[in-house]
Amino acid sequence: MSNVPGLYVLGEANFSDHGANRLGASALMQGLADGYFVLPNTIGDYLATQKPAARPKTDAFEFQQAENNVRGIVTRLLGVKGKQPVSHFHKRLGKILWNGCGMARNAVGLRKALAEIPALREEYWQNVNVPGDGGTLNQSLERAGRVADFLELAELLCLDALERDESCGCHFREEHVDAEGECLRNDEQFAHAAAWEYQGEGRAPLLNKEPLVYETVHMAKRNYK
C-alpha cells in the first residue's frame, strides 16, 4: 500500500524488488509476483476491512476539487482548437526522450531535453487540435489529457535523471562508468529514492529523499560477469 490508504502500487508500477532496474523481465517478474502472491492477499485484506457506507461521497470537498480540476483541463484542451493532432506532439515528445533520456544518458543531453520539453508543452497548449466535445465518448480528448500529463512527467523524468549524478540500474549516466564499462554508483550521495512532490503548475517540484536502509542484505556492486 502506498501512503494513500487504499491506493496500492502493485505489479509493473512496484519497484520495490529491483530498484532502478527496469529492464524487461524485472517488470514482468514484479507483475507475476505481485499478481499471484501479493495482490490477492493485500487488496482483499484491505477491502475486507472497509464498510461500504463509509465510502467517500462525491460531494466531499476533495472530490469536487478533483472534478473541477479535470473539468478545467477538459475545457482548456477543447478550447485550444489548434492545427496539429495530439499524436503529433506525442511523437515529438517521444523523440526528445529517446534522444536525451534513453537508458544511457548524460548531463548535456538531459539539459537539452529539459529545454525542449517546456517549449513543446507551450506549443501543445497553443496548437493542439482536439475535435469533438466533452459530453460524449471522445478518444482524442482522452489521449490529449494523457499527453498533457506526459509532457509534465517527461520533464520530471529528465530532471530526476539529471539530479541523480551516478549510474544505477537502468539509469546509466555515461559520465559514471567503471573500467569495465559497468555502472558506477555513488552510494554516499544517492542511496535514496527520490520522491518528487508536485508544487503546482509551472513550479519546480520538491525533492523528498527517502533513504534506502538495508538491514540484512548490504549494497554491493552489480556485476553480471
Partner: peptide, 12 residues
Amino acid sequence: VNDELTVKGEEP
C-alpha cells in the same frame, strides 16, 4: 487515418 481527419477538422 484519424490524424488526417483531425487535421481536416473532421471527427476521427
